[in-house]
Each structure stands twice: as structure tokens, then as C-alpha cells.
């Protein structure tokens, strides 16, 4: 039934003609997010008979056991049962003490659950998820902020590293030698802030390789990366969506865009790569969670550092992408 609905949608929007015209990027994002939404609905309906699971929650205000729905309930739903404070502050969930779990990803079995936030004693995993989300959202901003005559094509972003001082997205732009002025960077920052203030939930979904190819058919870089990613992840491609923007990432990410507090897009630097076509630019930025308040002087120091070129992995033609796009969630040991 869903497949039929999908066909109807294809008919109505008439993509064959659209591709002949030069599609603008909002149309492209709309198409991608529609496909994402349809697949999400299909997966939800294919759950069938609802089974119950026991979720043992450990943490404040007290330890509880919740009876939830298998493959439907998410850690976010558990947080809603436990209180508003946990709903607002939880960034990612930790399942069975070892697997990081996206807050909006359905739980598949009975488990122990912890909800992590930014001010824990050991928040390194949360910081990483936060940094990854920032990169992902920077991609969304890059796609949405340019005028129509500039062709924007997202490439990828390296594995998040907070110590490097900035989060990164590598984007192909049809601009020869663009050096952004202060005002342009300011505009990008404002676009970023405006995007985050729309309080988009960050949704996640695992789709098959073919479906991912369909979603990213207009992006040559992503379509090249997809087989590699799927091979490393049991034939599935993990996708994330915020607003209309859909992207591939290993995850997990934080719950909502309103977790971001201070945001700056600090620099855009042209990279030396062997990728054919238009030049690749590295977008860099810094951000802090909403719950962390920092004085402007200290934030200025961080900003100043983030203007320098981030030395993370620079994209090349034949590259092993398993570093950042490997399995969906890998257990990471907290030291």
C-alpha cells in the first residue's frame, strides 16, 4: 500500500520532467525528505503485532522499570514517562551500558537504559554525538544558504573530533576562488542559528542500499559512498533527517536542534584535493550546547582557534570511508 502511495507521489510531482529542468535545492531536499518520511511510515507499519519489552531505567530521579512497545518505543518515549527534565536535557541514550543509542530510534529488545547529558562526569560520548550533529547541521545550512546560481553538492565530513577545535563539512561549490568575507560568515552563522531555533527533531532511519541510492541520486559523491557504507553495515545505510535535510551518518546524534546554544560558522577554506569538477570547500564552525553558558571572551578564544584549517581527513577519490560511516553504533569503552 505504501509502495502504491509512493508511486502516486512520484506521478504527481513528475520527477522525470523536473530533472530536465535545473532543480533548485529546496525541491531536492523536499524530495529527499518525502522519500525518508514514506520509508519511515512503511517501516513503522511493517512492525505488525505489537510486543511488549521491559526497559530498566537507571538514573535520577529513581530506578524504574517501564513496559514499552517493541520496535516502536524509543528512549525519548521512556524519558517522557520519567519527567520533563530528562526529556529536555537527554542527548543520547546508553543501552545495556555499552551501546550508544539515538534518542528517536525504536528499542528492539528488553534492555537497561541510561540517559546521557552534557554535564555528566564523563561526557566524552555525548560530546562526540554533539559534534557529529553539528557537522550534519552545518551541511544543512550550506545547502540552504546559497543563492540558486551556486551549485552546492555535499561531500562528507570526517569523524568528529572535539579536540580539533571545530566541526567540519566538506562541500563542493561552483565557485572558483571564494574567500568568505566577515559578513558572509556572519550570515551563515545566522542561518545556522535560525535553522536550529526551528526545534527540529533529529530523526533516524536505516534503509536498504537501493533506497539510499534513490534518495541521493542527484548527489554524485554520496551515491559513490553508499555501496561502501552499506558493505560495512550489513547492507543498510543509516540516514538522519532534521527539517527537510537528509544525510548519511553513522550516528548517533543528539535529540533536537534546540540543544544547540551558541553557534558560529568560523571559516570556509578551499581544499587541495584530486576530486574532479568544482573545488571542495571545508566549512568549519564551533557550537556549544544550550545548557553550557560561557562568557564572550572565552568563547572568542575558541572561535579564533576554529578559524584555522581543521586537519581532519581531507576527501580524496579512493578513500576508505569505514572510519566514519561504518556500523551504525559501535560499542565504545568509556575510560
Amino acid at each position: 500500500m505504501i509502495y502504491k502511495r509512493f508511486l502516486v507521489l512520484l506521478k504527481n510531482t513528475n520527477y522525470s520532467r523536473v530533472t530536465k529542468r535545473n532543480i533548485t535545492f529546496t525541491e531536492e531536499s523536499e524530495r529527499q525528505s518525502n522519500l525518508f518520511r514514506l520509508e519511515k511510515v512503511r517501516q513503522k507499519e511493517s512492525v505488525g503485532r505489537i510486543e511488549k519489552i521491559e526497559v530498566q531505567y537507571a538514573g535520577p530521579p529513581n530506578e524504574t522499570t517501564l513496559i514499552m512497545n517493541k520496535n516502536i518505543s524509543t528512549p525519548y518515549d521512556c524519558a517522557k514517562h520519567l519527567g520533563e527534565m530528562l526529556v529536555n536535557r537527554s542527548a543520547v541514550a546508553l543501552v545495556n551500558g555499552e551501546t550508544l543509542w539515538h534518542m528517536h530510534r525504536p528499542l528492539v529488545d528488553s534492555c537497561k537504559l541510561e540517559l546521557l547529558h552534557y554535564k555528566m562526569a564523563q561526557p566524552s560520548l555525548v560530546n562526540k554525538a554533539f559534534w557529529r550533529t553539528c557537522s550534519f547541521l552545518l551541511g544543512a545550512v550550506a545547502v540552504n544558504s546559497f543563492k540558486d546560481q551556486v551549485k552546492v553538492c555535499l561531500h562528507s565530513f570526517p569523524s568528529p573530533n572535539v579536540r580539533s577545535g571545530s566541526f567540519v563539512y566538506d562541500v563542493q561549490l561552483s565557485l572558483k576562488d571564494w574567500k568568505p568575507e566577515k559578513n558572509e560568515l556572519k550570515t551563515l552563522s545566522i542561518e545556522f542559528i535560525k535553522f536550529c531555533q526551528q526545534n527540529h527533531q533529529i530523526e533516524c532511519l536505516e534503509v536498504s542500499e537501493d533506497y539510499a541510492q534513490l534518495i541521493f541520486k542527484n548527489n554524485p559523491h554520496k551515491s559513490k559512498q553508499i555501496p561502501d557504507i552499506a558493505a560495512n553495515n550489513n547492507g543498510k545505510v543509516p540516514l538522519f533527517k532534521a527539517g527537510l535535510h537528509v544525510d548519511i551518518s553513522r550516528g548517533p546524534m543528539i535529540t533536537n536542534t534546540n540543544h544547540l546554544g551558541r553557534i558560529t560558522v568560523t571559516n570556509v577554506i578551499k581544499l587541495e584535493t584530486d576530486i574532479p569538477g568544482d573545488p571542495i570547500y571545508r566549512f568549519q564552525g564551533v557550537a556549544l550546547p544550550h545548557s553550557i553558558i560561557l562568557n564572550h571572551f572565552a568563547y572568542g578564544l575558541i572561535e579564533e582557534r576554529a578559524r584555522k584549517l581543521n586537519t581532519g581527513r581531507i576527501p580524496a577519490i579512493n578513500q576508505d570511508l569505514s572510519i566514519d560511516y561504518g556500523s551504525f553504533v559501535k560499542p565504545q569503552v568509556v575510560v
Binding site: A121, P123, F130, A298, I302, E304
Partner: peptide, 17 residues
């Protein structure tokens, strides 16, 4: 003071640099 919180990590690295 918690040195592991994100802004403290960023400041520490900025200081080193």
C-alpha cells in the same frame, strides 16, 4: 570544575595551541 565538559576541552586545547 569538570575538565571533560565540552567547553573546557575546547579551552584546554586552545590554551595548548
Amino acid at each position: 570544575y569538570n575538565k571533560n565538559i565540552i567547553h573546557n576541552i575546547l579551552l584546554e586545547e586552545a590554551k595548548k595551541e
